[in-house]
Every structure is written in C-alpha cells, then in structure tokens.
Simulated assay, not measured.
Amino acid sequence: MNTPSQEDATVTHHQIAAGGVRLHYVAAGPAQGSLVVLLHGFPEFWRAWERQIGPLADAGFRVIAPDLRGYNLSEKPLGVEAYRLQTLQQDVSNLIRALGYERAHVVGHDWGGIIAWALAIRQPEIVQKLVILNAPHPGASRRAFRKPAQWKRSWYIFFFQLPWLPERVLLRFAEKVLRGVNPDAYTENNRNLYRQAWNQPGAATAMINYYRALKPFQKREEVRDESLQVRVPTLVLWGNLDAALLPEMADGLERWVPDLRVVRFAQASHWIMRDDPLRVNKFIIDFFSS
C-alpha cells in the first residue's frame, strides 16, 4: 500500500516560547491556511504524525506538530508538578496564541488526545473542531476504570509510579508498545529516530512524569457531567484492537459531547494513524473542510 509520509510536505523546524516553556515544533502548509495542531502521545514525538502532515498541508491547512513538553527537543521542566494536565493544556493554548492565532483545529492521540479533550472542555473558544484518536474522554475514563479489565490493561500506569526503575527500562518498554497491527508502521529508520528522542537528556523522566502526575492511588472526587461537556464539533476515530484501552471507552460519549461522530476501525490498533493512514487522513480532512 502506498501510504503518505512526512516527505510529502516541506517541513520547517522551529522553537517558540509558549508561556513558561520552550517548545520545538514542525510546520507545513500555507501560512494563510486554517491552523491544525497535531498533539502526539506517549512515547512518541512530532513524528507520530509523519503520515498526516503532508496530506493535511496539501489540503490547504497550516499544520503545526509540536513536541510536547518533556519530549524530544522541547524543554523538560523538572518535577512531577510540571506535568499536571492543566499545565499541559495551557501549553497548547499558549502555543496557538504565540503563533498569532485565536483558534485552531486540534487533533490529539493518546496523551495528546487527553490534553485535547481538556482544552476543548476548559477553553472551547480556542478549539474550532476537535479530532480524537484513541484517547478517552475523562468521563468515559472514569466509567471504564470501574472495570477490572481496564485496570489489567493499564498496569503500566502503576509501574510508572515507582522511582528510577521505570526510567531504567523505558527504552525497551517504549519499543514494545510501538508495535502496531501494521508491520510496516515503524521502519528501522523510524526506530532510530525514536531512540534518539528517548535518549535526550531528561526525556525519560519527563515522559514518565506525565503518568506520575495522574496520582492514580488518590481517591477521585465525583465530577458533575456539566463540567465535562465538550461544546465543539468532535470526531472520534477509534482503533478497536487497542491493547491498552477497552473498545467501550468510545461508547456513550454523547452524554458529554453533543456534536459528535464516532468512527471505529476494526483492524486498527492504538496506533491508528499509522495502521490506516489513508482512511484516517480522509476522515480528518473531510471533517475540517466541512
């Protein structure tokens, strides 16, 4: 299958001060195009989107794919507190404004999707349209974690609470989790680039601190549905073969997201944008163009 790649677009690399953190990002597409911000997850960096950036740029969008704080070439603040969800969300809104925009289409996968959900909930004025790839809405996540099956899939969250040991095994763990359904999803060149990103000074601890900041052993307060509402048009693309998240996490989202479309990919894993890039790209472009 001929799949789109990063080389399909002219990409430029940039550094920008977004609030209190310096972020690295790549940019592609016409400067006058509507802004699309692509947010990667764990354990990736901007190259998570190398099969999406070119097609989105060719469709006329201004595409920005940052390394989230702590990842690859972005700044890596010290301490767990620097990786609270509210701080990560504010990084994205600061980035959009620092680029000179008031609003953006936002696409998020995994941790990038968790951040994108938070941004749409807390700062909907910044999000024009939202696309989520295999990342749970906070309400759906609370519901799913009442089931032992989800706890079993999420064992690594608890492992990451340990001191120093997760950092020691991160490289092997990260390579293992990137094995998707598509055997061609990650070439050896991809793997080398990822290894370079993971071996950046401070990167291992920063990446794991995303999970340490969750405080999974603390009692969760009951949150009213009204505080979890997403009032922007939303498209959820979900790979049903996700090894970490139960498929039902994409069920019943209308409770919190009135303007919603959910598309399931029966043969895609958690790494849906690599497993089936042509369909993922078409859904995203059609959604943002409508």
Rank of each mutant, 00 (worst) to 15 (best):
H270G: 03
A144L: 14
W111A: 00
R224C: 09
D275N: 06
V63D: 04
P66R: 04
V262M: 08
S141H: 13
K76L: 01
L246S: 10
F159N: 04
P258R: 14
G239C: 10
I285D: 02
G60R: 08
L171A: 14
L260N: 06
W198N: 05
Q128L: 13
Q32T: 13
D110S: 10
A28N: 02
P43Q: 00
F42S: 05
Y25W: 04
M273C: 12
L170A: 13
F288E: 01
K282M: 06
Y156P: 11
N281C: 02
A266N: 13
W256M: 08
F61V: 01
L130K: 07
P136N: 11
I96A: 01
L68P: 08
V80T: 07
P66A: 08
R261E: 12
H137R: 02
N281E: 01
A268Q: 05
H109R: 08
M1I: 09
H13D: 13
L214A: 13
H14L: 05
R143M: 03
R172W: 14
W238V: 00
A28D: 02
L237E: 10
K215S: 12
E248T: 12
I126Q: 12
M1S: 15
L133E: 09
P216S: 04
W155A: 12
P4S: 10
G113N: 06
M207C: 03
Q6A: 15
T10F: 09
L165E: 09
D225M: 09
R191H: 08
R279N: 11
A203N: 03
V11A: 09
A118V: 05
P183Y: 03
L95K: 02
I121Q: 10
L56P: 00
E50D: 15
K215D: 14
Y194W: 14
L38H: 01
K129P: 03
L278T: 12
L130A: 08
P277Y: 06
L214V: 14
E226Y: 04
R22G: 09
A18R: 03
I64K: 07
E75A: 10
I96W: 01
D275T: 02
Q6V: 13
G20H: 11
Q32W: 04
D91T: 00
D251E: 14
E75G: 09
I121Y: 07
R168L: 15
S154C: 08
E75Y: 00
W164G: 12
F45H: 14
A120M: 07
A243I: 08
I157L: 14
D8P: 05
Q128A: 13
F283G: 02
L235S: 11
E44D: 13
P4L: 10
P4V: 02
F158S: 14
P77D: 05
D110R: 10
S93F: 04
V177D: 07
F288R: 04
I114D: 01
P183M: 03
E102S: 13
A18Q: 08
Q32C: 06
Y211P: 00
D225C: 07
N134V: 03
A104L: 05
A203S: 07
N2W: 11
T87V: 13
G60E: 09
D184I: 06
E222Y: 05
W198F: 07
L260Q: 10
Q128V: 07
R255G: 05
D91I: 04
D259I: 03
T187E: 05
A82W: 00
